[in-house]
Design a binder for these strands. Structure first.
Lengths: 191, 191
DNA sequence: CAAGTATCGAGACTCCGAGTATCGATACCT
DNA sequence: AGGTATCGATACTCGGAGTCTCGATACTTG
């Protein structure tokens, strides 16, 4: 088994349920949209019972967040300079959001978080904070600048996805890079 | 409760229902959040019956869109040059989204639209298109560039609102203006 | 003033999804 | 083989979106 099996209590172990549920979540969201992707349908697509899903995640939102975390994986932070890092991060986020189901799931859970403080906390702590901290370290930028960077990149991509139902095209992603990089260039930038 | 019989427009039984419902929508969303702001609660806050709301708007999403349209009003497009127009538009959107209830309502209906093509059509046609056309005319930019501008401005502001629950602070709005304006400056810009 | 009419208010109703609870079945570890 | 925790199935509560009916009301017109 390639995964690190830490302390495993006796009893029936967890078969590869999480991976199956993640895949089923994305495909169901992709086929039916976020609202019609009910937990019951996701569970059925994964071949597990709804109660199994709720045993592993406290809410639909938490499931989606973990699913997104799995879909994004580690951020690509290896670059020659800050511009290269930022560019590769933007392309990575755009590419991942463009994968089937990811954009819908992201926009959906993001909207749910608007009126659900508990979900907002999950979203912020489990999804945004790890990438934010890694970016602060890689770019040497203060927290508020990195938060602004994330607002710009993710906000633009999600708005396009939400308004049109389609991921952003390459030419607009290029425009996004060309707009963002000068603003974050080193030197006499704004505080 | 006292039946406040104030100004009555001509026609059959038409009271100033729309305005009362719009105000009740924003205050209810502001107090309870988007998800808890049910149509029943909004109607109660407006002093009307739920059936009255559904007689005037086909869905909760359509009500929110009309409410946002009322909250934003006409775009401020009178400026000396393109930079001034874009700057005033950005500040106007930021200021309006920062008004109580508007940001929550916007982010909420936006998220609903992700998985509801009919609502997405309403949102795009009734809210985005009029402003987009006015901006194309005022800025002399092609459609895809104005759509990108809207994606940037609205996407960033909504992402901040959704992630933090608070509107964007003035210093970050200033940073947004400083990032966007050079990209749309006239001259040897990208196609 | 009276009649006509369209909207309003109240509330019951259906539909559906989130999340909970129960219990027998099962698959893994020791 | 046996112990044990998870799994599957299923029934359940709760709440909101949207529909429908009907009596009440308020406005317009003769």
């Amino acid at each position: 088994m390639p995964s690190t099996a830490s302390a495993r209590p006796p009893g029936r172990p967890r078969a590869g349920v999480n991976a199956k549920v993640f895949a089923a979540t994305l495909s169901t969201v992709h086929e039916l949209g976020y609202a019609r992707a009910t937990v019951e349908r996701i569970a059925a697509a994964a071949g597990v019972a709804k109660s199994t899903v709720y045993r592993r995640w406290p809410s639909k939102g938490a499931l989606i967040v973990d699913c997104l975390l799995d879909a994004f994986g580690p951020a690509p932070l290896e670059g020659a300079d800050r511009a290269e890092i930022m560019s590769s991060v933007i392309h990575w986020v755009a590419r991942t959001i463009g994968e089937p189901g990811v954009g819908d799931a992201f926009a959906g859970v993001f909207s749910d978080a608007v009126s659900d403080p508990a979900l907002r906390e999950i979203l912020s702590a489990r999804l945004q904070d790890p990438y934010r901290l890694a970016l602060q370290d890689a770019l040497g930028e203060p927290e508020h600048r990195v938060l602004f960077f994330i607002d710009v990149v993710v906000g633009v991509l999600l708005h396009r996805m939400g308004m049109t139902g389609e991921p952003m095209v390459d030419s607009d992603i290029a425009a996004l890079v060309e707009m963002v990089l000068p603003h974050f260039a080193e030197g006499p930038g704004p505080t």
